[in-house]
């Protein structure tokens, strides 16, 4: 009864896919992808790690790293930086593209960048004046969000 088996497995798959609760699991430093480790060693060599968790996603898990100085970072499963956030603007140089920093300086000279998020077609920065700016890959403004 091949048909029956197919139907049953589809049902099971559907049921399991519908389980969407956040499942972040704590992991050891060693389990972070190499690129992520390299990144942290490069920019935060002397900082200690507060905790590391991974989003239990079947396809592409995300890694969350928090440093004891209050900086939080999110890496893709390949170890690429996706998001970095800090409450006191301690994002090191070299992480955010210079064009964006300059653009922001251009709009808001006295404002600090508190957070930076990047994906395949956009960059987003969170400013200390509570504004968020989104840029496309050519560093042109896409949208202003409040």
């Amino acid at each position: 009864m091949n048909m029956k088996r197919i139907i049953i497995s589809v049902v099971i798959a559907l049921v399991s896919l519908s389980n969407l609760r956040a499942d972040d699991i704590p992991v050891m430093w060693a389990q972070l992808p190499e690129a992520a480790q390299a990144f942290i060693n490069k920019y935060y060599q002397n900082e200690k790690v507060s905790f590391v968790t991974v989003d239990d996603d079947l396809i592409a898990p995300d890694y969350h790293v928090a440093l004891v100085n209050g900086v939080m970072m999110q890496f893709s499963h390949k170890g690429k930086l996706e998001k970095i956030e800090s409450k006191n603007a301690s994002i090191p140089e070299g992480i955010i593209p210079i064009q964006i920093i300059q653009a922001v300086k251009g709009f808001y000279p006295d404002v600090n960048i508190l957070g930076y998020e990047v994906d395949w077609n956009s960059h987003e920065v969170k400013l200390s004046n509570r504004l968020e700016l989104k840029f496309n890959n050519k560093f042109k403004i896409k949208r202003l969000d409040d």
């Binding site: 519908s18 389980n19 969407l20 609760r21 956040a22 972040d24 507060s50 969350h64 928090a66 440093l67 004891v68 100085n69 209050g70 900086v71 939080m72 956030e85 800090s86 409450k87 006191n88």
Partner: peptide, 25 residues
Amino acid sequence: EKIHADTDLILRDYSDDIIMRFLSG
């Protein structure tokens, strides 16, 4: 599930925020 999952995400963001503040002083 989605409704509950959203709650969890809110909780996580809330948690991250507090921890970051705490660690940043």
